[in-house]
Design a protein around this nucleic acid. Structure first.
Lengths: 119, 119
DNA sequence: TCGCATTCCTACCAATCGGTAGGAACGGCT
DNA sequence: AGCCGTTCCTACCGATTGGTAGGAATGCGA
């Protein structure tokens, strides 16, 4: 999908690559929440208000597969462990502290001018 | 939806507001394409490869409703005019040249480390 | 006046996303 | 051993997204 669209509009085809990282509603929020440091799943559920159990799991899986988030199994690699901890990878950190932080900053600055669908 | 989730994780709830602007796959691409200047609909269709007619229309409507894009009716306000031209509003320009450009830049810099779903 | 390109809309359709509900595997505690 | 909290999965559901196809309205040129 990406390769094909890159034949035109070459200079900005990176936008599509980056957009896929944040195309899911909760992914940016999860990444932002992880900026506060390594966090357990359940702590994320509480810190992020309104996210459902399943979606958080899927989001973490997506972000892990994309290399933005690392799962620290406290003991071994067996899933469904209790003490699993998620943290930003170096790539995820550069993303969350870079463009994502800029995005949030811009939204904060232009809050008054934003016409959200729910306001 | 936003108001409720903002009760927790307040400092970064702006991320959700900003995320809604780019939650649709093609919106960031359209905004990027408009950075090159006021463009007619059909020119956008050609410049952006792979986007469908309907989706571009919807994207432009969304972005216009959000105040990021302005539609310049060459003559009057009647829709379905031939010479309609779209351009970034000042808000859209600050968004496209700010966080969106940063996003693209980051994606270009980290291109090698990105594991896209289609690669 | 007759096409023709352009803009935009309206069905449909498949795929996906987020949500709820229920349950399974694992660890910790008593 | 028994119970509970945590992590994660599955099955279903409604809503939304993006795509295709077809058509309507407008303006332009032959």
């Amino acid at each position: 999908m990406i390769e094909k669209t890159c034949q035109t509009f070459v200079s900005d085809c990176h936008i599509r690559a980056a957009a896929e990282l944040i195309n899911h509603a909760w992914d940016p929020v999860v990444l932002s929440a992880l900026r506060l440091g390594p966090t357990r799943r359940n702590a994320l559920l509480g810190r992020i208000g309104g996210i459902s159990d399943k979606v958080l799991t899927q989001s973490l899986q997506r972000l892990s597969a994309g290399g933005l988030v690392t799962r620290l199994s406290t003991g071994d690699q067996i899933p469904r462990r209790k003490g699993a901890v998620y943290q930003l990878s170096s790539l995820g950190e550069s993303f969350a502290n870079g463009p994502l932080a800029q995005l949030a900053q811009w939204a904060a600055d232009n809050q008054a001018d934003l016409v959200g669908p729910s306001s």
